[in-house]
Design a protein around this nucleic acid. Structure first.
Lengths: 219, 219
DNA sequence: TAAAATTTTTAGATTAGTCTAAAAAACAGT
DNA sequence: ACTGTTTTTTAGACTAATCTAAAAATTTTA
């Protein structure tokens, strides 16, 4: 049985590894979970002791199979709870992260499987992130970042790369939500902004920052 | 902001006080939460420091207004989650206690109020226990223990005094659940058992132990 | 490749929550 | 009211998770 804290370390390591890195460094972890590097070192020793991570002094860490299973199970719980909060309790997509962060630590597997069933086995959460199944497998999707789309191409918004409340609220203001159809009208090299048309109706200029954080499934 | 442990102490003290006692003794608390009396004394000092309980050495404790508000809010959360688990996720009434015990510590008030709304503002949980409202007020109900009923009287089962899994499963076997109509046919002084008829159809003998733990609303 | 900068680990301390053993206070029975 | 039992508190210690400061290892840069 793992503590709340140990679970958070594993999830954090998983995220760092899945981002790009071959190994998760002490510093990267300490930044991610906002604790001192010294505390992280201590915890890494404990997690290695429990065979949840591979740890060699000064070399950074990777997850063992057991460690990865726990991490994906936490991500599964987090994302299913987010679906529940949005679909059933009508929270908006920018309000659910912190609550799900607590809910993901509830232990019962029976609970999470019944919840999954109740929600209709969703494959993606309210931000478009894939929900791993019981075995830790993610549904893959053909998606590209909006920056990679050329003028004239169109597609559907399926995800975001940034999850902050301000960004999500800003997207709401721009009427950009998951599922809307967009077509790239023009790309401005000058400031990397682009002009799109939303659902064949509304034209909009998107700044580079927005363009870099939207994921699209090409039509 | 209170810790998981502090919250459990407050809830435990609340339950002891609401049972019958004028004050909650160190020993009663230590039995309720399965920790040593010495640890309880330590915690009582901390809770008194935070003005959540009134504590005087060797005299037992009572809750302050703040302490009581926190306790009833925990009970509210626990019981609402139990309703969710039974009504929405189809758990049976004997499976939900431990899961709700974890869920009750999730912090968000917004969450619990939306959950309450989603569930249709239930006034009682799956075991017939009243769910306090946002201000800590319980819905009262005219109810008596089945032992107090005389032969010939009838009523509806509305609650249980014991919440253990074996007891609840045993009630299922006897086809006794909340809402069923019962009429007392005969009372046997010899072993304090009684004969009842359920929903005007099925006769059944109930032992003293069962009779003492059922709550009935008289017809 | 040697010096400088950065990262990581060690050392030592702190806090919350727990324990056992022993002392102190309260209660109960004659 | 005394004596014995029970309850409660104190004393001292342990573990998990954290911290700061300093030492050690690694990486970067010139």
């Amino acid at each position: 049985m793992l503590s709340y804290t140990e679970e958070n370390y594993l999830k954090s390591i998983y995220k760092i590894l899945s981002f790009d890195h071959k190994t998760a460094s002490t510093n990267a972890i300490s930044k991610a979970i906002q604790t001192s590097a010294a505390s992280v070192t201590d915890m890494l020793k404990r997690l290695a002791e429990k065979e949840l991570i591979h740890y060699e002094k000064y070399k950074g860490v990777t997850l063992t199979v057991r460690g990865e299973r726990i991490a994906t199970s936490l991500i599964r719980k987090h994302r299913l709870w987010e679906v529940f909060l949005v679909d059933k309790l009508n929270f908006s997509w920018d309000e659910v992260h912190d609550i799900a962060e607590e809910l993901e630590h509830i232990k019962s597997n029976e609970l999470i499987n019944r919840l999954d069933n109740y929600l209709g086995h969703p494959k993606f959460d309210p931000h478009g992130d894939p929900i791993p199944d019981e075995n830790g497998h993610f549904t893959l999707r053909h998606q590209i970042c909006l920056v990679e789309m050329d003028a004239g191409e169109s597609g559907v918004i399926v995800g975001v790369l940034e999850h902050s409340t301000p960004f999500l609220q800003y997207l709401d203001r721009l009427k950009l939500k998951l599922g809307v159809n967009i077509k790239v009208i023009e790309k401005f090299e000058y400031d990397e902004s682009i002009k799109i048309i939303i659902d064949d109706r509304e034209e909009q200029i998107l700044t580079q920052k927005v363009v870099q954080n939207l994921l699209v499934q090409k039509a």
